[in-house]
Amino acid sequence: MDQSTGTSTDFKPTLLFFYGTLRIPSVLKRILNLSEHPILTPAEITGYKIKLWGPYPALVKCEDPAAEGSVPIAGSTYNVTNQTHLQRLNTYEGANYTLESIVLHEISPETGERVAKEGNIYVWNGLPDILKDGVFKPEFFEKK
């Protein structure tokens, strides 16, 4: 591990899709201890639905995406470039979430063009019966 950069020889930069509190720039900046606001790119995924764990969104895989309408979930992508940042994100998400690979679509803010990319998402890994239906309210977490 290179202590100055927080990287290890087996770490590969990864594109993460955020759909909840981590897509709020001030929250992500604080979690990663960044000096500037992070660069987030609009994106969306399908094949999942959002439930709530208290005020926090929890992504769960759709049993049958076609039957559930496969509604796109809006979010943002962020390129994690060092191991320390990934560890901080994993700690923030905790044991109730796990990383899964996914094909997502980044959306160009300038043109609206959708580009498919490989990335990772945090998916609910806790007890399913503690999740509720509802709408995530990001304003509850944004700094005023």
Rank of each mutant, 00 (worst) to 15 (best):
A58W: 00
N90M: 10
I121V: 10
T9Q: 15
Y56E: 03
I45F: 04
T41M: 08
C62K: 13
E139R: 11
K137R: 15
I45H: 01
S70N: 15
V27D: 04
G54N: 10
I50V: 12
I102C: 13
I130H: 12
G47K: 01
K143P: 03
I121S: 03
G126A: 07
I121F: 01
L99T: 10
I50A: 05
I45P: 00
D2E: 09
I73S: 07
E44F: 09
P25F: 02
G20C: 07
T21N: 03
Y56H: 11
M1V: 01
T84E: 07
A95F: 15
F18T: 01
P72F: 12
W124Q: 00
T91G: 08
L89M: 11
D133N: 14
D64K: 14
S70Q: 13
V27P: 02
E93R: 06
T14H: 08
F136P: 01
C62E: 15
P65R: 02
V80H: 00
K132E: 13
T84R: 08
G94V: 07
L99S: 12
T41H: 10
E106H: 03
G94A: 15
V80Q: 00
E68F: 11
E110A: 12
G20L: 03
E106A: 01
N96G: 11
E100Q: 15
D64G: 08
A116P: 08
I73A: 09
D133I: 05
W53H: 13
I130Y: 11
Y122M: 04
L40Q: 12
R30A: 14
E100I: 01
E68K: 13
A58V: 02
P13Y: 04
K12F: 05
P65V: 05
T46M: 08
I130G: 05
E68H: 12
E106L: 03
L16H: 03
A43E: 00
T7A: 11
T84S: 09
G94R: 14
I107N: 02
V115T: 15
T77H: 06
T77N: 06
D10H: 09
R88T: 02
F18L: 07
T81D: 10
K29D: 07
I130R: 13
P57V: 05
H105E: 10
N79G: 05
G126P: 03
S70H: 10
L16E: 01
G119F: 02
R30E: 14
K143Y: 14
G94M: 11
T9Y: 14
L89E: 02
F18G: 01
R30M: 08
E139C: 05
W124P: 00
Y56C: 03
F140P: 04
D133T: 10
S70V: 03
S76T: 09
G75W: 01
I39F: 13
K132I: 09
T21D: 05
I31T: 15
Q83T: 07
L16A: 04
E93C: 06
Y48G: 02
K144L: 08
L127S: 15
S76C: 10
T9M: 14
A67P: 05
E113S: 12
T41F: 02
E118Q: 14
P42H: 08
L52Y: 07
